[in-house]
Write a protein that binds this DNA or RNA. Structure first.
Lengths: 221, 221
DNA sequence: CTTATATGAATGAACG
DNA sequence: CGTTCATTCATATAAG
């Protein structure tokens, strides 16, 4: 909001209102944002930084048990425990979708074509392989399970209004898990490519740029 | 990084280098960032926006289980005896069979049909619902777990009897009895202080401010 | 308060 | 495609 306003104003300065520009000694001078606007902009960035930091923390905590443990790749890990008996059977055999992969899968699942054709499977697999190890079988199984379980829920929900005394809200069928996702997931699709490496690099790219604001009170504390 | 540089430069302009400023007709002119710098700044914000969006999605997907999985489960402890501070309700209370229910379940489990059909599940649920809140899913899960775990016990017992530590025959799939895997399951418990409210408000504050950059190619196309 | 265990629930994979 | 199995996750409870 505020950023957009600033952006518009900036364009005005650069294009529509040359009377706000001056050249002197080969240096271009223009009328700039007021300190207030500047401060606002800085706050925007700072807010983003703060949110990113918090979300990263939350994400770390939440996925500590799963695939992102310690930043190591989730699937096919060789645990250091094998040294005990010199055995190497403990390779994880079960694929676990990354959060990103799950997001994409859910989106595809909901956006129409309930029939994941063979060709479609390949495409999806190819797409998801950019976000972690995956195979076509995984995708196929995932859709099979996803559909079967959503249908089972339907059946259970439909049949459970028989003996239940309460007017439960179990008509959710299959939406609870994916209902609140299209608020801002509409864009930012698969081309975003945020896996751990990317996210990390981006965050590092931006890292340390927001602490200069931590004395302000805008954070709400 | 880049932001900080810009910030420093900005401060220089405003404080240390008045020779870059000019006043004319009551309007203050200062040397501003180059278009390149401006573009960089915009990219910073856009990167943050993208990351935030992605992280929010990830977080939603990851917390969907906690918040909505049991969403409708029958036994929600409506006893609002929260500790001070107004913690979140989080009706993620998992079902716990009562003594009577457990008795009945065990009896049914031992008396024959190891395969509780869906119809059977309904009957059992109906019966058990007279001794406490329960759902068909609970019964289904209970039987699944009961069976799986009794089977595992057998396997473990059988394997522990036969193999010595030296022979090292392929013991199925890693002995589940001696697997110290709780290296990371201990933390990430109660220290997750930040919950949705703060994040949400901040995100609303920034909502819709980044889409103006989506035509750029910096995302790594 | 921390650690270990029991167990309800979720889910990838396999079966028929 | 529906159902079942095997494994894992997460939490409630118990133990230290």
């Amino acid at each position: 909001m505020m950023i957009m306003e600033w952006d518009q104003q900036q364009q005005q300065q650069q294009e529509s209102q040359p009377q706000n520009q001056k050249e002197e000694n080969g240096v271009m001078y223009v009328k700039v944002m007021t300190d207030e606007q500047l401060e606002t902009l800085r706050k925007q960035i700072a807010v983003y930084a703060s949110i990113c930091e918090q979300l990263v923390e939350m994400h770390k905590n939440l996925t500590a048990h799963q695939d992102l443990t310690g930043g190591r790749l989730g699937n096919l890990y060789c645990d250091p425990l094998m040294t005990t008996g010199g055995h190497k059977i403990s390779a994880r055999q079960r694929w676990t979708p990354t959060a990103v992969q799950l997001q994409i899968l859910e989106r595809i699942f909901h956006e129409g074509t309930g029939t994941p054709s063979k060709q479609k499977i390949k495409e999806i697999t190819s797409e998801l392989s950019q976000h972690g190890q995956i195979s076509e079988t995984n995708v196929y199984n995932w859709f099979q399970n996803r559909r079967a379980r959503s249908k089972r829920k339907q059946v259970v929900a439909a049949s459970s209004n028989n003996n239940a005394a309460e007017s439960e809200v179990e008509t959710e069928v299959e939406s609870p898990k994916t209902k609140p996702e299209n608020l801002l997931a509409s864009q930012a699709e698969q081309d975003v490519c945020f896996q751990n490496p990317e996210i990390s690099s981006q965050l590092n790219y931006l890292g340390g740029s927001y602490h200069i604001y931590d004395q302000h009170a805008w954070q709400g504390e």
